[in-house]
Write a protein that binds this DNA or RNA. Structure first.
Length: 567
RNA sequence: CGGGGUGUAGCGCAGUUGGUAGCGCGCGUGGUUUGGGACCAUGAGGUCGGGAGUUCGAGCCUCUCCACCCCGACCA
């Protein structure tokens, strides 16, 4: 490729209003161009990277017996009605009517389409297990796209779906795909990827994993143990309980003046915050008359995601309780009997005694609260947010928090979709069963941007060789020099036989060429100049290390073959 | 959806109390340069996000809509 003809210009100025490193570098180096909020065109250089990532994914999917298909982006409402998701998914699914007034949608995922494809096509146990996959455009009208390609509304994704006759077979296949994913991330040059269980956070959950790239620009908070293998998304992470065992005392009312918050009470009574019971009130959207009151140990905070999951609702908000009969700042779980409230207790309160909670009237709290004796509660669940430094639920060592980008996920779906859509296969005994499914996704663009997030320096992108748009940047300096010009042209023609060469044939000053080669992140730069030609040599610079070597022109092919070899 | 911010040339930006639209980079042409974003000359490029209003006159003031960015909510 001649750089003078490459579509996509490079910019010296840092783009305005851009915060993510990958976003800035991809724009500046001429890889992407924004079309709308969360919608981008990939320029030729980015498309080359994308195709290389896709091909690696394709090879690994084929290795686990995947069969590539292509399902539609546009689908009729009917197949999504069968799973119930036409109505259960919110505005992130794009819906529209076609010219015949038929309700249609744009695919954000393809479980329904996949079952549609396979039902009455895959009919017998004898055909299982089988897996189909596609690399295709997904449309998700995200509420808030951000950070360039990291979170977009339209993107290329590899999604795969497997079918099995029994759980053992699914589990075995799931593990094969898990290993394939590890190979994919390694091969595309992604370094800090971890797989975390997204099942229930405790060890042993193996129903789903998400693959998280650990970079600062990540939007997921991950709780990790540096000592053992515990790792979990903040949404479901747990920590080891560290309750102080307070003495059992008799229940008494306590005058607490105007102290309302845990901080004020701890100050007033000179007690550890752990001795208090905090009450947090939530409203469920759409249910005006109900109030959720979550009780939790005074020093802890409620994890909304966990609470929502427990309640099985989509949306909760911290609510104003002024007209509910609850006394703000004095809410307590002792003698609290109201029809319009749903009480939830965090595990940190289970079986505890000697605690302090609100007395449900102004200026008073109860002390000596014994959860077993004084509170009629049976629903103790984990709704607590984990903070950095809390102890690992497995090994007891301190936990740390890291940011991550979800670059892939794998799920055991079970028979949810096959039963909803009535897909069956014949078994040896003549019976019909709904096959068990697994599904497996990887976002291609997110991988591309994620790699830029973790692989760049102050000069620009540093592409891993396996996915670099070109491997060799042929860079003549002094194009006015006839010999440089002639030899460079000749080299371009020759080297292009064996390597992917980006030839900087522009008649411009040296600084621009050298800077562009670094900004674009091409792994190997070959400089041809009067200086190098005087020795019949080329000067090679390795982008990643900055290492420079002089190579005789006669040995150039051989040297480049070594330098561009993909590990 | 809530909060904050920004919209002026391809990119980055300036534009004073309201008075003829500017700078740097980039782009075209001619020339001089030549190993880390050279220089001279010259040229092209604008519905100042859209609409309405105030005014003799609006990039600037008012209202309104829109787009984009950031934080949060949301994320099959």
């Amino acid at each position: 490729m001649r750089l003078s003809k490459l579509v996509g210009e490079r910019f010296k100025d840092i783009p305005a209003g851009v915060s993510a490193k990958s976003h800035s570098l991809l724009l500046r180096a001429g890889y992407i161009k924004q079309v709308a909020n969360g919608v981008y065109s990939l320029l030729p250089s980015a498309q080359r990277v994308s195709l290389k990532i896709q091909n690696i994914i394709r090879e690994e999917m084929n290795k686990v017996d995947g069969q590539e298909v292509l399902m539609p982006v546009m689908m009729p409402r009917e197949i999504w009605d069968k799973s119930g998701r036409y109505t259960s998914i919110g505005q992130e699914m794009v819906r529209f009517k076609d010219r015949n007034n038929h309700e249609m949608l744009l695919g954000m995922t393809h479980e329904e389409a996949c079952v549609h494809l396979c039902q009455n096509t895959v009919k017998s146990y004898d055909q299982l297990p089988c897996m189909i996959y596609q690399i295709q455009t997904k449309i998700r009208d995200e509420a808030r796209p951000r950070a360039g390609l990291l979170r977009v509304r339209e993107f290329t994704m590899k999604d795969a779906y497997s079918f099995h006759t029994n759980n053992d077979d699914l589990n075995e296949y799931y593990n094969r795909v898990y290993k394939a994913y590890e190979r994919i991330y390694k091969r595309i040059g992604m370094k800090n990827v971890i797989a975390i269980s997204s099942d229930n956070g405790m060890m042993g959950g193996d129903g789903a994993h998400e693959f998280q790239l650990l970079v600062e620009a990540g939007e997921d908070n991950l709780i990790l143990c540096e000592n053992c293998d515990y790792k979990a998304n903040m949404e479901i992470a747990t920590s080891k309980l560290d309750n102080a065992n307070f003495d059992d005392e008799k229940l008494e009312e306590l005058f607490t003046e105007n102290a309302k918050t845990i901080d004020e009470l701890a100050m007033l009574l000179k007690k550890d915050k752990k001795q208090f019971i905090k009450a947090v009130c939530y409203a469920i959207s759409g249910e005006k008359d109900k109030v959720i009151v979550a009780f939790i140990r005074g020093d802890k905070e409620v994890n909304d995601a966990k609470l929502k999951k427990y309640l099985g609702v989509n949306d909760i908000n911290v609510t104003d309780i002024s007209d509910t009969g609850l006394v703000k700042g004095n809410i307590g779980c002792v003698n609290l009997e109201m029809d319009n409230i749903i009480k939830v207790f965090d595990l940190s309160l289970k079986d505890q005694k000697g605690l302090i909670c609100g007395a449900n009237k102004e200026e008073y709290h109860y002390c000596g609260v014994n959860m077993l004796r004084d509170v009629k509660a049976d629903n103790f669940v984990d709704i607590a947010k984990v903070n950095e430094g809390e102890l690992c639920p497995v090994c007891g060592k301190p936990l740390i928090i890291r940011k991550g980008i979800e670059v892939g996920n794998i799920f055991k779906l079970g028979t949810h979709y096959t039963s909803a859509m009535e897909m069956t296969v014949s078994m040896p005994d003549g019976s019909q069963i709904n096959p068990i499914m697994g599904c497996y996704g990887i976002g291609v663009g997110r991988c591309l941007a994620g790699i830029v997030e973790e692989s760049s320096d102050d000069k620009g992108i540093v592409w891993p060789k396996a996915i670099a748009p070109w491997l060799v940047y042929l860079c003549p300096l002094r194009n006015d020099n006839a010999e440089v010009e002639e030899i460079s042209e000749k080299l371009y023609n020759e080297l292009s036989q064996n390597f992917e060469v980006l030839y900087d044939d522009r008649k411009i000053s040296a600084g621009i060429k050298l800077t562009d080669s670094e900004l674009m992140g091409i792994p190997v730069r070959v400089v041809i100049s009067p200086r190098s030609l005087s020795q019949s040599q080329a000067e090679i610079t390795i982008r990643e290390s900055g290492e420079k070597i002089m190579v005789d022109l006669a040995n150039l092919n051989e040297t480049l073959a070594k330098l561009t070899m993909i590990d």
